[in-house]
Design a protein around this nucleic acid. Structure first.
Length: 291
DNA sequence: AGCATTGTTTCACA
DNA sequence: TTGTGAAACAATGC
């Protein structure tokens, strides 16, 4: 699920619900999610510090402590992660991000079970593992949890984000043109390269290219300035629409990324190939390449 | 059983 | 230097 829109939603949730709270304990026992740290590393660095800011570039988040003077925590949702913030003990509300809606009671139950314990918060799934891979417990009794079925999410101290390009939602049109419209790599591979612009994943890339009627396989350096500007606009619109609607899977073309589907705009067959190492679907007429 | 999956990293190779 | 493809990572769903 998580591409830029989902991660921004998670960041905003943290900003709204977790800032100002002090860390009392940390569950950093998953040595894969917390690699290269060993259990206790993150805990001993963070306990006693107060969350003061939640930042994001592309799909990467970081939480600052003590106004930037304390250690920071990097969070990445990987392929299937979601953030859950549990309210203070006794508070009525809890908030969840991503996946199926989770009631406050369910979120509390999930928090109570902790990592690796049995008992899914959803009664229909009771008996299944809970998928809590990392947790910050706050002094007020609440918590911030990283749920992740696939375990490809990350939690790490003082993350290095220098390899990332500018955030896909913050990059100016001029900079987008200069960074994306270069080289012989397929356009889709170029916009998904996190060092070029950060935040575009497989589904958002397919959606933006379809909206802009651009062929995924077209060399990025072939686009005109106007075409790059139109792609920048399409990408912004698709990203904002995904945030508003609740995820990249709500894009207009996403449901048509399947065999025997027709383009929902012109009716031509949708076609598939691997581009940039990822399964890619596009309209055989509007996005044909070469023309 | 086999294949695919919204992400990242690494490596062999052209 | 650039770019590609495949594999690995982990776990689930069809």
């Amino acid at each position: 699920m998580p591409e830029l829109p989902e991660v921004e939603t998670a960041r905003a949730l943290i900003e709204a619900c977790a800032l100002g709270r002090t860390i009392a304990a940390v569950d950093d026992g998953d040595t894969y999610v917390c690699r290269p740290h060993v259990p206790g590393d993150i805990a001993s660095a963070l306990v006693g510090h107060e969350l003061t800011r939640a930042g994001r570039i592309g799909k990467s988040m970081w939480l600052e402590t003590d106004g930037g003077d304390g250690p920071s925590l990097g969070l990445h949702l990987g392929m299937a992660g979601r953030i859950v913030v549990v309210g203070a003990e006794g508070a009525a509300e809890s908030t969840a991000y991503g996946g199926d809606p989770m009631s406050p009671a369910e979120a509390k139950a999930a928090a109570a079970t902790g990592a690796g314990a049995g008992g899914h918060p959803d009664p229909r799934l009771s008996g299944n593992p809970v998928w809590t891979r990392f947790a910050l417990d706050f002094e007020d009794g609440g918590a911030l949890l990283l749920f992740d079925k696939r375990r490809l999410g990350r939690a790490v101290l003082n993350p290095d984000l220098t390899h990332l390009g500018p955030d896909a939602l913050l990059v100016s049109k001029a900079e987008f043109r200069a960074r994306v419209g270069v080289g012989e790599a397929p356009l889709k591979a170029r916009i998904m390269d996190q060092s070029v612009i950060a935040g575009v994943g497989n589904l958002l890339a397919d959606e933006a290219l379809w909206q802009a009627r651009q062929p995924p396989l077209r060399p990025a350096g072939d686009l005109s300035g106007d075409e790059l500007g139109a792609l920048w606009t399409a990408l912004r619109k698709a990203t904002k629409a995904a945030m508003k609607r609740g995820g990249v899977h709500t894009g207009d073309v996403i449901d048509f990324r399947r065999r025997d589907a027709a383009c929902p705009r012109c009716g031509a067959p949708m076609v598939k190939a691997a581009v940039g190492g990822r399964t890619t679907w596009w309209c055989s007429a509007e996005q044909a390449w070469p023309h």
